[in-house]
Amino acid sequence: MRAYASVWRLRFQLGMQYRTAAFAGIATQLFFGFVFIMVYMAFYANGAKSATIDLPDLITYTWLQQIFLTLIMLWYRDNEIFGLIMSGNIAYELCRPCGIYGFWYAKLLGQRLAGATLRYLPLLPIVLVLPKPYRLGFPPSAASFALFLLALILGLFIVVGVSMLIYISVFWTLSPVGSTLMIAVAGEFFAGMVIPVPLMPGWLQNAVNFLPFRWTADFPFRVYSGHIPVREAAAGVAVQLGWVAILVAFGAWLLSRALRRTVIQGG
C-alpha cells in the first residue's frame, strides 16, 4: 500500500509543477463555460419549456464540468505509460515487488488529481462570484454536497478504471491512438459532456444508464445541484461502487493476461 501511496504522491508533485498549463487551462475552461452557458440561455429563451432540468441547474452542471474536466475527461492520457509499453521500459516495472495494476492506477490518480487541483483552486472563486445568470450555485443541502464529493471521487475511480483498459489495450495494438480516440469520443458523449444527459431523449437516457460513463460526470454534478435528490443519490453511489469493482477486476484480469504474453519491445 505504501508503494502505491508513494507513487501517487510523486506523480501529484510532478503534476503540480505545470503552472503555465494551469493558466492556459483556466482561460480555456472559462471560455468554454461561457460559450456553453450562452448557448443554453438562448436555447431556454426560445421555448425549451419542457426540458427536465432548469437553467440554473444546467449552468451549475456546465461549470462543474469545466472545473473538474481533468478528473473526468477520458482523452487525458499519460504518455509515460504508453511509452513504457511501446519502448519496452516496462521491463523495469516488472521487476518491482508490487502489482502493476495498482501501481499504474495510483499513478493515474495522482496525475489527474494534480491537474484538477491546479484548475479548481483558481477557478472556483472566480465562478462563485460571477454576475447572476452565470454564477455557480451552491448545493441545496450539506447532504447533497457530501454526496457530491463522494460521487466525484468514485467517478474519478471509474474514469481511471476505464482508462486503464485503454492502456492495457496497447499491449495488443501497440498504438494508443485508436483505443483512446474510440473510447474517448464514445465515452464523452455517454458521459453527457457533449449534450447534458437530462437533455437527451428518453430512450438514449435509458441506454446511458447502463454504461459506466454517465456515473463519472453527469451523476456527481446533478447531485451537487440537487437535481438528483439525496436518496436517489445514495443509491447512485452504490451503482458507482459496483462499476469500480467491475472495472478494476476486469482490468486486473486483462493485465495479467497481457503480461503473460508480453514481448518486451526493442530487445
Binding site: R2, A3, A5, S6, L10, L14, S87, N89, R96, P97
Partner: peptide
C-alpha cells in the same frame, strides 16, 4: 537487482533522490 543499460528506471523530471525515495517505499 536489475540494470538495463538501454533503459531508464529513474523519473525523468524529478531529482534522482525522489526516485530513490519511491524505490524505498516500493521495496519497503
Amino acid at each position: 537487482g536489475v540494470v538495463f543499460g538501454q533503459r531508464s528506471q529513474l523519473w525523468w523530471d524529478v531529482p534522482v533522490l525522489d526516485s530513490f525515495e519511491l524505490l524505498k517505499d516500493i521495496y519497503r
